[in-house]
Nucleic acid binder design. Structure first.
Lengths: 144, 144
DNA sequence: ATAGCTCTCTATAGTAGCTATAGAGTCAAG
DNA sequence: CTTGACTCTATAGCTACTATAGAGAGCTAT
């Protein structure tokens, strides 16, 4: 049961180019090739790509996924590392939510400053944006 | 009162390279030059850069900021366009928050699946990630 | 004047995770 | 035998910067 890259992509809900990209990045192993130099994939490839895509749908970075795949390929150890990775990831997501909610509040405050159609010079929003004293506090890398 | 790029950057809380980048992108006008070919800035530049940085701190894209600057430089019309832009931006932020909260729930569910230190094959998290039936629903471009 | 130091200049490449394009080859059906 | 769908490689583009190299400007201390 050997399928080509288009089928593999379809079954995993991603683009053909993305599969090749994962191969280049070392997340997917180099597959066998047909006589005409087409990539040929089997069940293990399908499962692995679905694993990757599922991790991506959980917004993990390729680097995190690489780590998970490494742990998975190396099943002698215990799985404490996986718990740590997931816990860290959850915390990052929660921090991002908090930052976005703060941001939303700033934007809503700004929106209140102009009700509608005034001449440009009187627009409270523009003036609010010009006001250099009301910058949003941000850490070094915002991670919104 | 003419300052050089380092001072300008310091006053606006960004890097020197970022100022040059904004110039290349057409957000900042090309400034006058000194005899030694150094960029020289005045008050208008300072105000404009602070405006840009404030918008960035509100997570607006450079493209959105370009639009705002265009509206600002063209003060004959009324300011309805600014309201629309801001409203759209707030909605994008709210969608992102919603998506992240969903994502967080998925991650927390996954975390429940493995309490601690089992051998790798039994790790509920890895098995949960392999399960292709539990992908997170995502629109075309996730915008997390 | 010369050394040392900080600031500035241009140009280029790298970051993440793809997406898009060009130009060529493969393969099955009509 | 040609059409069409699929695949191949290689390269450039996207966002908003960051990092690097190598050279010049301008000030202070000797």
């Amino acid at each position: 049961m050997e399928i080509r890259i288009g089928d593999l992509a379809k079954r995993s809900g991603c683009e053909v180019v993305t599969v090749r990209y994962y191969e280049k990045e070392g997340l997917m192993p180099k597959p066998a090739r047909s006589g005409g130099n087409f990539r040929l994939y089997g069940d293990a490839h399908i499962e692995r790509l679905q694993f990757i895509r599922h991790c991506r749908s959980l917004d993990m970075t390729l680097s995190e996924i690489r780590t998970l795949l490494g742990l998975r390929d190396n099943p002698t150890q215990d799985c404490g590392g996986i718990n740590v990775l997931l816990e860290t990831h959850i915390q990052q997501v929660e921090m991002r939510v908090a930052a976005l909610l703060q941001l939303r509040q700033h934007l809503v405050n700004l929106r209140e400053k102009c009700s509608g159609s005034r001449p440009m010079e009187a627009c409270g929003i523009l003036n609010g944006l010009s006001d250099s004293n009301c910058h949003v506090a941000r850490s070094k890398q915002s991670n919104l």
